[in-house]
Design a protein around this nucleic acid. Structure first.
Lengths: 158, 158
DNA sequence: ATGAGTGCAAACCGTTTGCAATCGG
DNA sequence: CCGATTGCAAACGGTTTGCACTCAT
C-alpha cells in the first residue's frame, strides 16, 4: 500500500510536479477506494484528509494523473463510473455490478483475438479498451444467502 | 442497407413505437454514418433529411433505440465518441484512430480469457465491454504513401 | 523567493424536463 | 380521433476557466 503511494509520488516528482497537500489527499483517497470514484466523491472523501480540498483541484489532478498514467477512467455499458488508480502497464478493471468495487487484472491474453480481428477487418490494431463486469465474491455470497431464504445476512457480505 | 433499415423499423413497430419522420431521419443518418455520431452531429446531418429535427428528439430517440438494442454508445480511452448502429446480438466495434470510421465485429472469442479472469478474481463474470482501436485500411494506405515520400496522395485513400 | 498550484465564483456546454402544439396509427 | 411524439425554452448538473492568493521547492 505504502509502496503504491510511493510509486505514484515518484511519478509526480520525476515529471517535475509538486506533491501538494491536496494532491496527496486525492491520491490517498483513490488508493483507499474499492470502487471507481467520481470527481465529487473524491472531493468528499478527500476532505477528510485535507479539509480545504476543492473540486476544481480534483479535476486538475485527475487530468494530470491520467497524463502520468496513474489513474484511469472506468466506463461501462451504463456510462462512466469514475476514476480508479491504474497500475503501470496495460491492465484492465473488473467491476462488480452490485457494489461497483473493482479489481485490476494484469495479464491480458487478447493477442490471438486481436490478430483475428485484424485479419477480418483489415485494420492495423493499435490498442483496445476492455472492461469486465460481474459479481464480486461478497455480492455472490449475499445472493446465495438470500436465495436460500436465510434471513441472517452475513455482516461480512458486503 | 434497405434491410438494415427495415430491421430497425421492425423493432419500433414490434414494441409499439411510432415511426415518425424525425425518427426515420435519425435512423437513416446513423445508417449512413461511417463513424459514431454525437447527438449534435446526428441532428445536423439529420436535418438534411427532416429539416425540423430537434436536438431533444435526437436524445429521446437514442435513448429509445438503446433500449431496443439497435444503437450503442461507443467509448474509447479518450472519451465518448458517440453513438453507432448496433447489430442485434453481442458485437464489438473497431474504431479507426485517424478517421473514426467503425466496423462491427460479430464473433467474440473471449470465453477463455474471461474464464481465467473469473478464476483469478473470484468474480462471477456477467458481461464485458470491449472496443478496439486501430488504423483502417484507407488510413494505413495514406500513411504508407506519406512515408515513401510519394507526394501523389491517392484520392481513394481516405 | 517565485512560479506552480489552489480555491472561489462565474462562465460554459451538453443533457434533461415541462408544456402546449402536432402527427401517426 | 386521441394519445404518443415533438420542438421550444428553461432548468439542470457536471466541467472548465479567470483570477488573486498561497504553498512547495
Amino acid at each position: 500500500m505504502a509502496d503504491r503511494y510511493e510509486a505514484i509520488a515518484e511519478q509526480f516528482r520525476v515529471h517535475g510536479y509538486k506533491l501538494t497537500q491536496p494532491r496527496r489527499a486525492i491520491v490517498q483517497t483513490l488508493l483507499g477506494a474499492a470502487k471507481p470514484l467520481s470527481p465529487a466523491e473524491i472531493q468528499q472523501r478527500g476532505q477528510k484528509l485535507y479539509h480545504e480540498l476543492g473540486l476544481v483541484t480534483v479535476y486538475r489532478t485527475l487530468e494530470l494523473m491520467e497524463l502520468l498514467g496513474t489513474v484511469r477512467a472506468v466506463h461501462l455499458a451504463d456510462g462512466c463510473h469514475g476514476f480508479a488508480i491504474a497500475s503501470p502497464g496495460h491492465t484492465h478493471h473488473v467491476v462488480c455490478e452490485r457494489c461497483h468495487c473493482v479489481v485490476e487484472i494484469a495479464g491480458c491474453d487478447l493477442g490471438d483475438f486481436l490478430d483475428t480481428v485484424a485479419e477480418r477487418t483489415g485494420y492495423a490494431i493499435t490498442g483496445h479498451w476492455l472492461e469486465v463486469s460481474g459479481l464480486c465474491a461478497a455480492c455472490q455470497a449475499q445472493d446465495a444467502a438470500e436465495h436460500t431464504h436465510d434471513d441472517s445476512i452475513d455482516a461480512t457480505a458486503r
